[in-house]
Amino acid sequence: MNENRDVVKQRAGTSPKEREAELSIRMPVDIFEDETGITVLADMPGVSKERLDVQIDNNTLSIQGTTEIAMPDGMEALYADVRSTRYQRSFALSSELDGGKADASLKDGVLALRIPKREEHKARKIEVRTG
């Protein structure tokens, strides 16, 4: 934990929440919307299903995961682009999305999350009357 503490020490001016966020990776996402809902795709390489945590609470979508990578004993680092074992990102949802019906899947480190719109919010064609 020594190395970890050193990193934290350098950020003495920041709050614990900030520190935690800084030590985790903000993974890249694609987000798109169609008529029936919103899809979030997130790259989280190294995260297995057991170590993935997706929560929707109070209209906040929170995605977290930790990496688990097979390594031989006594391995020393020669080079590291990835310096954290944790992914974290959160998004505010709007009320027309039905978090209770969200569906998530994980394949090869890509999280696919689908949040449908509530029935009454699905786009309706509005008739324009004449006369």
């Binding site: 920041t14 900030e18 990776i25 903000r26 993974m27 990835v82 974290q88």
Partner: peptide, 9 residues
């Protein structure tokens, strides 16, 4: 909040 390590992005 800080955006964290953006090494991936």
């Amino acid at each position: 909040w800080p955006s964290g390590i953006r090494s991936v992005a």
